[in-house]
Write a protein that binds this DNA or RNA. Sequence first.
DNA 1: TCGACGAACTGAAGCGCTTCAGATAACCTC
DNA 2: GAGGTTATCTGAAGCGCTTCAGTTCGTCGA
Lengths: 359, 359
Amino acid sequence: MPEDRRRPTLDTLAAEVGVSRATVSNAYNRPDQLSEQLRERILRAAERLGYAGPDPVARSLATQRCGAVAVLTDTNLSTAFSDPALSITLDALSSAMDSEDHALLLLAGSAEGGPSPERVRRAQADVLVAYSLADDTPAMRAVAARGLPVVVIDSPMLAGAAMVGIDDRGGANLAAQHLLDHGHRRFAILADEIQPDQYRGPADAGRLAKIGYRVSAERFHGYRSALDAAGIGEVRTWEAGGIDATLGARGARWLLDQDPPPTALLCMTDHLAVGAAQAAAELGIQVPEELSIVGFDDSWLATQVAPRLTTIRQDLAAKGRTAGELAQRLLAGHQAGPPVQLPTELIIRESSGPAPHAQ
Amino acid sequence: MPEDRRRPTLDTLAAEVGVSRATVSNAYNRPDQLSEQLRERILRAAERLGYAGPDPVARSLATQRCGAVAVLTDTNLSTAFSDPALSITLDALSSAMDSEDHALLLLAGSAEGGPSPERVRRAQADVLVAYSLADDTPAMRAVAARGLPVVVIDSPMLAGAAMVGIDDRGGANLAAQHLLDHGHRRFAILADEIQPDQYRGPADAGRLAKIGYRVSAERFHGYRSALDAAGIGEVRTWEAGGIDATLGARGARWLLDQDPPPTALLCMTDHLAVGAAQAAAELGIQVPEELSIVGFDDSWLATQVAPRLTTIRQDLAAKGRTAGELAQRLLAGHQAGPPVQLPTELIIRESSGPAPHAQ
DNA sequence: TCGACGAACTGAAGCGCTTCAGATAACCTC
DNA sequence: GAGGTTATCTGAAGCGCTTCAGTTCGTCGA
């Protein structure tokens, strides 16, 4: 009779102690509903039987809450987390959500942009958080189909979802304007990803005409708005296909090899900018004397390299926190409000300076 | 009658199509159990009703599998992920596990080391993976209580759990021996965390006598075994209280300020070593001419700084992959085998060299 | 024509828990 | 001592799905 090999359940425990199942449940969830002494007895019996508390899944089914927020990323784990921005944002997100109550369920993407729809469909979560996904992916369609509350960070747009992002366009405009103010006229742009198609190389007008990532699009048009206002025409753009510094270096080598070479390089992320700076160093090009570089994000890296990066700061912690608050609100049954847009700021350091005289 | 505001369930759909619930379930899970044509009809009806597929929680309850592996970390998210080792390991882990079938549930820790026991108790996962936790934490007790399969990466030891780690002791020995071979006699040690108690400062013999993290203990004793063999007595040790480069710099400043100053600095992680190198630079101490530094992990950072770091390489991807395989095996019902220990390797770069003559 | 067979579908028993509307009894209050 | 409270505890109805043992029925071989 002690030969029952199955894990103990509430019933086992109830039978053992000689009370009803409801009472055992209360012992765990509503201590005020039974006498302290009976509760002790139940807990002791639980210990004795090796009962670790109510089964989380069954509890979820009964309560209709799973205590998890799913985060969908565009890329696989190690790529996603090589971007410190993600960690900071998620950290803020998770602590903003009633922290004891929600774990983070990571749905990392594959090469095709975003996690598989099947995974989205099977995710046990109360809210879905899409982090910088491309505009039209199977993952996002699955997200929409789930009918769960959705918070979008940065992109894509999704009807009915709460959104938080930064003023990418304004920030990019600031970056370009800063260089224009320093007299630069020969620009180049180093983009991360324009379409979720693994392409790496020069981006022609065709690709730039329909950018698949809202953030990239905003930044690009931010650059352009300043450049257009200054009467600067087409600017060579390289699509790195990722945010890795190595990819940035590769793109920079190509851009710097053009004739005439640019004196100003606009990079859509700090990582790319760091790679570009390395490439410049290898080519014997002085930064900022011969080449000014401006990054984006003001990531941790920006101050770790020499010269330190001029960049556009965004408040990642605020972004994560806001996302968390939005999630809370949706969970509480409120409608998603209008998109929240956080401000950006130009941080001037040593990687940018006046355009060289020769120009 | 179309005024039913609840989300549709299998029953709704079954009623709508006029088949049994089992059939609808089969339409999703066993397409071969019904005619293609009926299946189409069901799927179309699902679309029409906005039914996104079987509820994941209910499915989990019925199948007794949740399709998630929980990963417990020692610190909060942003700290945890500032260690690139985690990302790499987890990435390998998650792709090693039958990738379509398991999402990652992140149970990040708080200041007290490891996630709260309550969170562990409520985690909806099939396996628990403990990543470098301290030896005796409430979290680990909760882990043991859950009775789920457990995989431990690095530490702590846990009876019945599958374990994978690296030869920390051997690696540390290699590091110290390398410096001894270069004639160094005045050593200092920069440790990350020795006890999960937020302490930062010099570690006295008392603290070193009972190190709370198995990994730190192994590395420390690895250093010591080489030093002991060379007849070198007590060595000043600083406990950084984390792996942040800034913390490393702080410790290094103190260690380098001792009289006589060390010519060889053993750092338990690359991040600490980078911080130490920065501190040395600030103090006008040449590396490696006046001070040799050896890191640990061969992280991405090791080659990004100047001088590039001499360090101990461990194969993080292999570690993650192994953890994944162990998890699979446990899920398949096998017993945990003996701990798996992966090899380490000394990588010599420019941060270490011969001891200065003056010595 | 008959029995066997396979394809297609169904009934019902769970999976382990929460929760709400009582039931019971002890305790007050006036 | 009647009526009203309060503190404890219970019964039973779900939560939404999977799965196994059938049941039905058309078909096929002999």
